[in-house]
Structure formats: C-alpha cells, structure tokens
Computed example of a mutant assay.
Amino acid sequence: MNTHLTRMMILAVAIIFPGIIHAQIKFNYDNAGNRIKRELNSSLVQLDTKVLLRGPYRPGQVNMASDLQTYFSANSGLLPTTDPYGGNVVYNNIGNPAGVAGPVVDWIKIEIRDAANPAAKLQSKSLLLKPNGAVVDVDGTLPKFVGQSSPVRVAVFHRNHVAILSNPIASFNAGTAVYDFTTALNKASQLPGDLAQMGLINGKWYMWAGDINGDGAVDATDMTIANKDFLDGLYDQYLFTDVNLDGGVDATDGSIMNNALINGYYSTLINYAP
C-alpha cells in the first residue's frame, strides 16, 4: 500500500472523529485487494460481539447455515462483494470459505450509539457475520471502533431481520468490549411494553426474521413484497425476501414471514428515531 493512501486514511479518521487525535488506522492488502492486516493504537476499541439470525439458524443446528456463500460451488456464491448497507465496504473473496474471513453467513451492520440517547448514532460499520454468530471485519479480525468517553450501546442491523439494541456498555474507551446477544433475552434492550426482541432455538437467542423493508417492524408491507417474489418463483439470487438465506423464496420463507406478521415483531429502536 502506498504512503499517500495510508496518509489519506489517517486523515479521514481525524476528520470523521476530530476529538480523537490518536485514532490512526493503517491497512495492508493482499493481491486480491482484501485487507489482511491493520495497525492501530489504544484509542480504538475492539468489539467482540455475537448475534444469531433466525433465518439461517435452524432447529437442530449448532451454527447458522452459510448457504449463500457457496451456493453454486465451493468458491462461488450469492453474497455480494460490496456490502448492501451503503457502506461501500468490499470483500472480494466473500465466496471463498478459505478466505481471510473464513465461512460467512452474510453482511451485517453494527452501529455504536450513545447509551443515554440511543437515537444518537456515533459510528457505523458494515461487517461480516460468521456461522457461530461472531461479527468480524473483512480482514477476519474483530471490528475496531473509536473509543468513547461515555457509555454506549450496540445496535445490530441485518437486511431482512428485526434490528436489536444492546443494554449500555459502561466502558468503551480502550481494549476489547465483549457483548454476546445469544446468551439471554435481556441482552437485547427493550422498553416497558415492547415485545420480546429475540426468540429462542437450541438454547440460544436470535434476531427475528421478516423486516424486509428495514423499517423496524414486520407488517403487511413486508408480506406484500415477500408474496410477490414467492409468486414469481425467484431463486438463485441475493434476495431481501429470502429470509432463511438459502438462495430462493419458497414456502419456508412464507412460514417464517407469516409467524413474524402474526406476532407483530418490531424493534425497540423505533422508540429512538432520530
């Protein structure tokens, strides 16, 4: 990587987070253009978090299925090389389970939010979700965020699941912050009167599936979109309506969607609209 580009990355960090003058990140790349190494200082925090998606996390399975990564063959799948959340993050080797990030279920987005005012978004990153629920960056390492002097919350978004929000994390200024959503229902924050934010299978908690249009709730609009793709018989594509992430829209997706609609699942994040 040339010196000019390294300096530009350091400058970008300083511009985005002007109060953090020591948060410098330097990247190295392999021949395929994938990040393989980064250098950082103690002003950055590693986030070690786990989350499960209902769609690919099925009864009797130890981990989530990664059907989309190798849909066509061992090195050819449906997962896009660029993230679907508008972050312009690229992982060129996403179809290869032997790549630096290993087996991958899908792209996922993490936001760091202010604990006292969860409507305030402090940072956002498009990342990769592994079959065991671990969230990693495109170089296979734990994602790094700029440290904060006050408590934060972690918000998790997936393109067709209901977003969840953590409880306050008191210390987020250095080292590694650990937060495992899969261990208990109360790991996902909810206001009094809100519905349960996660479900339970195989002794672990997962995010509800079905929020296809990303508005924070499963409703008739989501069902209309899903029914259209089902009637059109779409498959072999990276589809928002493929809620079980197996490469097509079928009766299994319809069953999951119907259950989600009947139960009226929604995210507690709708209470914190900016």
Score class of each variant (00 low, 15 high):
D222Y: 12
M223Y: 10
D242G: 03
D180K: 07
D215Y: 12
G203K: 03
N173V: 04
F172L: 01
I225D: 07
R153W: 09
Q197I: 03
K204L: 12
P151E: 11
G216Y: 10
N213F: 09
L195M: 11
N173K: 08
A188G: 00
R153M: 14
N227E: 13
D229F: 09
A174W: 10
V218S: 07
T183P: 01
Y235D: 14
N202E: 00
Y238M: 08
Q197E: 06
D236S: 14
T176I: 12
T241R: 01
K187M: 11
N173H: 12
V156K: 08
A170F: 08
D242P: 04
K228E: 10
A209Y: 04
I225H: 03
F240S: 13
D222Q: 11
A184K: 02
F181P: 07
K204N: 13
T221L: 15
T221R: 11
N213C: 06
L200G: 01
N167P: 04
R159C: 00
L231W: 10
G203E: 04
K187H: 06
L165Q: 07
I164C: 08
T182N: 00
T221V: 15
A170V: 09
N160S: 14
F181L: 05
L195R: 13
L195V: 10
D242N: 08
V243L: 12
N173R: 09
N167T: 15
L195C: 03
N227H: 06
D219L: 05
Q190G: 11
S171Q: 13
V162H: 11
L239P: 01
I201T: 09
N202A: 00
H158D: 14
G216H: 12
I225P: 00
L239D: 09
F157W: 14
G233V: 04
T241S: 14
T176C: 06
N167Y: 10
L234V: 12
T183A: 09
A196Q: 01
K187Q: 11
P151G: 10
L195F: 12
G214I: 01
G214Q: 15
T183D: 02
Y179A: 06
M207F: 04
L165C: 03
V154I: 15
M198Y: 06
